[in-house]
Design a protein around this nucleic acid. Structure first.
Lengths: 131, 131
DNA sequence: AATCTATATAGACATAATACCTATAGAGGT
DNA sequence: ACCTCTATAGGTATTATGTCTATATAGATT
């Protein structure tokens, strides 16, 4: 039901929801930027650590998120043209972004509790062997 | 940042995402219907057990999900006009719905792992006291 | 009789999110 | 010249989401 498509086209799996890629990407980006300032391309290399795979990691999606974070004042960037290679943006987190990261962590903790509760009930009905 | 609005209007909190109400509602409805057949209104009474509050529990949303589940063949319903009161639909889960429930459980388990991983990294940066 | 409340379901609508696809451009190698 | 890697940006169609409103029955209250 949740198998990957072999045709390259989306199968529109109805259970794919629950945690959309983009929204979860934002706290991941903020956490990475809390640890170190980085370019978009750097961040793309690091996001697999948070469970993003090749399919869910569209570069356009990452850059769009970074632009949105900057619009919201959660990160700031400046062009970095020094060291050869194409011009790149260096992003860093703002104080506001750090506050938002804390809010995200609380929120994610709550959602995890909800999932725990769901899985507990599921296990009670079907037996824990299913998980 | 995630505080409730006192004006009654949505504040558009940017960290409210990560687990949209509607999509998570579907596995909850399927699990409830696995335990017992029920009317939409019954299900609305039970959904708070899964962390839905008054604000996130719009009846229209519940009925929309039930219709969608039926469109997808995951539940079936028939009108129940016997015992007085307005006509009501009695929903029951189908075999296909049960399979989808299993897929959901696996998916939710995976997402929980992702959240655990995030919170672990968060704790490593800020200290576990923040959670 | 009229009104109110609880039960019960359904649909409309605007905005936001999501996935997917394509475009642009510099640097370095073959 | 061509290809690949690095690096960023934008478009678009579809779906999701939240919110609001409409409909209707039954029973209790005034």
């Amino acid at each position: 039901m949740c198998e990957e498509s072999t045709s390259g086209k989306s199968t529109g799996c109805h259970c794919a929801g629950g945690m959309p890629v983009e929204r979860f990407m934002q706290p991941c980006l903020l956490l990475l930027l809390k640890q170190r300032s980085a370019h978009g391309y750097d961040l793309i290399q690091s996001l697999p650590e948070f469970g993003f795979n090749e399919k869910s990691l569209d570069p356009g999606t990452v850059y769009r998120n970074l632009r949105r974070l900057e619009e919201d004042g959660l990160v700031i960037s400046h062009w970095d043209v020094g060291d050869g290679g194409p011009a790149k943006r260096l992003y860093r987190i703002t104080d506001e972004g750090e506050e938002m990261l804390h809010a995200w962590a609380i929120h994610i903790g709550q959602q995890r509790k909800r999932m725990d509760n769901f899985l507990e009930r599921y296990g009670a009905v079907f037996g824990t062997g299913k998980l």
